[in-house]
Computed example of a mutant assay.
Amino acid sequence: MFSPFSAPSGSAAKNLTRLSVVGGIAATALLLLAGPASAHVSVQPQGEAAKGGYATINFKVPNERDDASTVKVEVNFPTDHPLASVSPQAVPGWKIDVTKSKLAKPLEMHGNTITEAVSKVTWTAAGSKIAPGYFQQFPLSVGQLPEDADQLVFKAIQTYDNKEVVRWIEEPKEGAAEPENPAPVLKLSAAGDDEHGGAADKHAAEPAAAQVGAKAADTATGTASADSSDTTARVLGIVGIVVGVAGVAYGVLAGRRRTTA
C-alpha cells in the first residue's frame, strides 16, 4: 500500500520532476509577461540632440491604466538650462498651451538678448484621448540646446479622466536603481563643427517636426496594435503552459491512485 511518507516510485519521481520543471517554466513566463507591463513618459530626439544646436524631440506618453484614459499631459522645462525657442507640432484632438516665464538671467542668442523662456507645455484632450493599451507622441522643435550640459531633465505630469494624476518627476541617478516615477531625460550628444553645434538648424528642425506630427497618429496606432498583439500572444502562450502543468499534475495524481489501488 502507498504511504504518504514513503519515497515515490521511479515513475512517480520522474513525473514530480517533470511537474517541477514545467511549473518553473510557467512561473518564469509569468514574470516575463509582467516585466514590460510598466512604462513611463519618456523623451527622445528625432536624429540627434547636439549641444548648442536645435532638435526635434518627441515626448512619448503611454496609457498605463486599464480603466481610464489620459486626457492631459504637462511637461515642465528645466530652469537651470532654459530653452528660448520651443515650437510645438499640432496634434489632432489635442489643445496645446505654451507657458513662458521671465528669466532671472537673460540669455544671448544669435546676437539678441532673450529675457523669457518656455517653462511649460501642456497638451489637453479636445476630442481625443490616450485610451488603455495605446500611447501618443507629442513633438516639439526646441533650441538652442545648452553647450555645458550632457542631458536635460523634464518633469511631466499625466492626468487621467478618472482624476488620477501621475507625477513623472523623479530624476534618475547614475548608478542607482530607476525610481518609481522617473522624469523624462533628454541625452545630448557632442557638438559638431557647424555654427549650430552639429545639430539641425532651427529652420531645418521645424519642417522635421511637421513631418513627425503628420505621422504621429499612425505611428501610435500601429505600434499600439503591435504591442497589443504581442501581449495577446504571450497571454495565450502562458495559458497553454498552465494547462500543460494541470495535465501533468492530473497524470501524476492518477498514477498514484492506480498504485494505491
Rank of each mutant, 00 (worst) to 15 (best):
N181E: 06
V242Q: 10
P62S: 04
A246Q: 08
H196T: 07
E180L: 10
S69F: 03
G24T: 03
N63S: 08
S3F: 05
T221M: 10
S3L: 06
S42Y: 07
A117L: 04
D150R: 10
L140D: 00
N162Y: 08
L152H: 02
A190E: 11
G35I: 15
S128W: 06
G93T: 02
V165P: 01
A50P: 00
E108C: 05
H110A: 15
A49C: 09
P172I: 05
N15A: 15
F5T: 13
W94F: 08
A39G: 06
A199E: 03
T17V: 13
A190D: 11
E164D: 04
D150M: 09
V153T: 01
A214F: 09
A199P: 04
K72H: 03
A233T: 13
S119G: 08
E164A: 03
P78K: 03
L19H: 07
I114Y: 03
E116K: 09
G127Y: 00
A191K: 05
G35H: 15
S128Y: 06
V166S: 00
L33I: 10
G222T: 15
E174R: 09
S42V: 09
Q211D: 15
A131S: 10
K215W: 11
H196D: 07
P184C: 13
G222A: 15
P106M: 02
Q151Y: 05
N15L: 15
P8H: 01
A226E: 15
H40T: 08
F2L: 14
I114G: 01
T17C: 13
P172H: 04
V242S: 09
N181P: 03
S38Y: 13
Q151V: 04
K202E: 10
T79R: 10
V98S: 05
